[in-house]
């Protein structure tokens, strides 16, 4: 799907949950296909697709996760704009991630692989490692921040060369 990664980031930014993002993205893909207008250009498609994703995320929260906090419409709109405006940078950072993961100490790299493997529950992984889930969440957060700094440095060095 065109713009798929940007849409995925947008949906995750609205819902924050990987599992919810996956369910909503599946529904978004179906709606996009059903209502696709062959006459749309890429930009129009992108705007429309983000609108569909916003509606599907709202519908999901309304129907399936009423107890969870839902951002207001204004924040939905602002996050959509931010993802679209930064889409080139975000894509470049995703490309740089592979390089940055290789620079991590082995223990951290293995932890990322284990924590992000499909279907892995952090609680279970923490128990296997003899750590608390909260400690593991914090470690992964620090690794993400390290990777954020790294991807920015990689992109800066690419601009210089």
């Amino acid at each position: 799907m065109e713009h798929e990664e940007s849409l995925r980031v947008f949906v995750r930014s609205l819902l924050l949950s990987h599992d919810e993002e996956r369910e909503v993205m599946q529904e978004v893909a179906v709606v996009l296909w059903r209502k696709f207008d062959a006459g749309m250009d890429s930009q129009a498609f992108c705007r429309w697709a983000f609108g569909v994703a916003r509606m599907e995320a709202l519908a999901f929260r309304r129907d399936r996760a009423r107890d969870r906090h839902t951002f207001g419409e204004e924040v939905f709109e602002l996050l959509g704009q931010t993802v679209l405006e930064q889409s080139d940078t975000l894509e470049a950072e995703r490309r740089a991630l592979g390089t940055c993961l290789q620079k991590l100490p082995e223990e951290q790299r293995l932890l990322v692989q284990a924590a992000y493997a499909p279907g892995v529950k952090i609680d279970n992984l923490a128990a296997q490692l003899g750590r608390t889930a909260m400690a593991l969440y914090k470690t992964l957060h620090r690794i993400r921040l390290t990777l954020m700094d790294c991807t920015r440095r990689v992109l800066a060095s690419e601009e210089l060369t």
Binding site: E5, R8, V9, R12, S13, L16, H18, E21, L79, T82, V83, Q86, T89, L90, E93, R94, L97, G98, L101, E106, E107, L110, L111, V112, Q113, A114, A115, Y116, A117, P118, Q128, L129, G130, R131, R144, L147, M148, T151
Partner: peptide, 29 residues
């Protein structure tokens, strides 16, 4: 915030594409 989320999403994709763990991680106990 969007950059953080972007990285989080991308890590999920990249982690699944690298070879399976060959070296077991060391448990605390």
């Amino acid at each position: 915030y969007v950059r953080y989320i972007n990285l989080d999403v991308a890590m999920g994709a990249v982690a699944k594409t690298v070879p399976m763990l060959e070296t077991p991680m060391t448990p605390a106990r």
